[in-house]
Each structure stands twice: as structure tokens, then as C-alpha cells.
């Protein structure tokens, strides 16, 4: 395993940024090849991928119109009153 890694001259440190980059756009063929090998043999890299995927899924969920995930904070009464007044006047 370490021999294979050495052949590709990739340490985990080199792999992680590529993993993240691949989430954002299609990476070049040579980079894909460089990424393939460590991913096939490295459990830690796989775990890292799943962590990033979890972050992405959670973030997308936060962005949904009906997301229930957001803390129950409320707009200040002053601002509410200000908006209500404005609507009453202008509508």
C-alpha cells in the first residue's frame, strides 16, 4: 500500500485538496488518475469524502424553503412594527 502511494508520490496531504476540488468541478484526467489510486486503497480518504458529502447535504438542506433545521430565532418586534407600518402606509 505504501509502495503504491510512493509510486504515485501522493500523501494523504496531497489527496485531500483534490477530493475537495473534485466536488466543485470536473478535474483534469491526469489529476483524476492521481486521485483514483489513493482513493481505492485509503480508508481515511473515503471517510474524508463522506464527511464532505455530509457537509454538502446538510448545507443544501439548510437552503430549502421549508427547512426545519434553522433555529427558532425571531425578528425583533421593532423591525416587525416598522415593516407593518410601511405596508399599511404604502399598500
Amino acid at each position: 500500500m505504501s509502495l503504491l502511494m510512493a509510486i504515485f508520490k501522493m500523501t494523504c496531504k496531497d489527496v485531500y485538496p483534490l477530493i475537495s476540488e473534485e466536488m466543485d468541478h470536473t478535474i483534469s484526467f491526469s489529476r483524476r488518475v492521481r486521485l483514483k489510486m489513493p482513493l481505492a486503497i485509503c480508508n481515511l480518504c473515503q471517510a474524508y469524502i463522506r464527511q464532505l458529502q455530509t457537509l454538502r447535504n446538510l448545507a443544501r438542506n439548510l437552503g430549502k424553503e421549508n427547512s426545519q433545521a434553522i433555529e427558532k430565532k425571531t425578528l425583533s418586534p421593532d423591525t416587525k412594527e416598522k415593516i407593518q407600518k410601511y405596508i399599511k402606509e404604502k399598500n
Binding site: 455530509t54 457537509l55 447535504n57 446538510l58 448545507a59 443544501r60 438542506n61 439548510l62 427547512s67 426545519q68 433545521a69 434553522i70 433555529e71
Partner: peptide, 13 residues
């Protein structure tokens, strides 16, 4: 399944 986890999403926020 993480998306169903409300508390986890709050931690992310």
C-alpha cells in the same frame, strides 16, 4: 441520512 438530522444542521449553521 444526515439531511434528516435537524440538530446536526443547526450545528452546521
Amino acid at each position: 441520512k444526515a439531511t434528516e438530522n435537524k440538530e446536526l444542521a443547526q450545528v452546521l449553521a
